[in-house]
Amino acid sequence: MAFSADELRVLRRALATALNPAPLQDEDIQDCLRLAASVDDAVREAGRLRAFLLADLTRYREALPGSLPGYLDLLQDALGAGYDPGVDDLAALRALRAHPRAAGLLERCQVLAERSVRARLARVSQAVAPGPRVRLLALPGGRAAADEPKPATPKQPPAPTKRPAPKPSEVFPPRRRPVPPPPPEERAVG
């Protein structure tokens, strides 16, 4: 990210104010807010550019081996921008290792992927690592308290009893056969 000369002056004034707090003029505050908005815009644009680059990299990877030169260029640009190669990238480069440039990128990607995995494992182990042991303190009670009379505790309601599971015939009663209609002679009354 590059700053213009005016933005550098605003940044220098903001840093000086942060180190030596003093009241700011309204114009200085507006300049700082404009600079913050410009930095936010640049960060958003960098995110959009990164997403586009990664989508383009995926398209080229899916079109391999026909897109080999373009894929290698895009992967190199993505690695320069801080991209951690994924499993798909490593598999594609392994399949193309006969190409000297792909073999060189494969070595670089393997080193980066290993660093990334080690960093993730270190973060996980730090999060899971137990803290320092705490001394256990004696609580009042213990054996001496067992000899003392215990105060009456209020009775708790009994635990609800478990109902047995219903049988299928209770849930789904048997189907009743329909009663056949009476013969036509009986229907005619009269």
Score class of each variant (00 low, 15 high):
A102S: 12
E185T: 09
A2V: 08
V43M: 12
E27N: 03
K162Y: 11
V134K: 09
L49A: 14
L57Q: 14
D26Y: 08
L8F: 03
G82S: 06
R61K: 11
L64R: 15
A63F: 11
G66S: 13
V10I: 02
L35M: 01
I29V: 15
N20A: 15
L57S: 12
R120H: 02
A145K: 05
P65H: 09
L72N: 09
L93Y: 00
L57V: 10
V128M: 12
A113R: 07
A37T: 06
R50S: 15
P164F: 02
D28W: 02
P85S: 04
G142C: 08
R12H: 01
R120C: 06
V189P: 08
R135W: 04
P184V: 14
L79W: 07
A138G: 04
A2S: 10
S125L: 15
Q110N: 11
L24K: 09
A14G: 06
F52W: 00
V10T: 01
E27D: 10
N20C: 11
A42I: 01
P149M: 01
V124I: 10
S169C: 10
N20R: 14
A146M: 03
E185G: 10
R50W: 07
V87C: 08
E170G: 12
A78E: 09
Y71P: 15
E27I: 07
L53M: 07
F172S: 07
Q76E: 15
T153N: 05
R59E: 11
L112Q: 09
T17E: 00
P100D: 03
L90K: 05
A16K: 00
L121Q: 10
P85L: 05
P85N: 06
P65D: 00
A152T: 08
D6T: 08
L72S: 02
L54Q: 15
R175Q: 12
S4P: 04
L112T: 04
E27T: 13
L139Q: 10
P69T: 09
P23M: 02
S38D: 05
E27H: 05
R9D: 04
A22H: 12
Q126G: 11
L75M: 13
E114D: 14
T153L: 15
P178I: 08
E7F: 01
V43A: 05
T58N: 12
V128T: 12
E45F: 08
A46K: 11
L106V: 06
P183N: 09
E62H: 12
R34Q: 06
T161K: 13
Q156V: 14
P168S: 07
K167S: 12
D89M: 06
A22V: 07
A16H: 04
L79G: 13
P132A: 15
L112M: 12
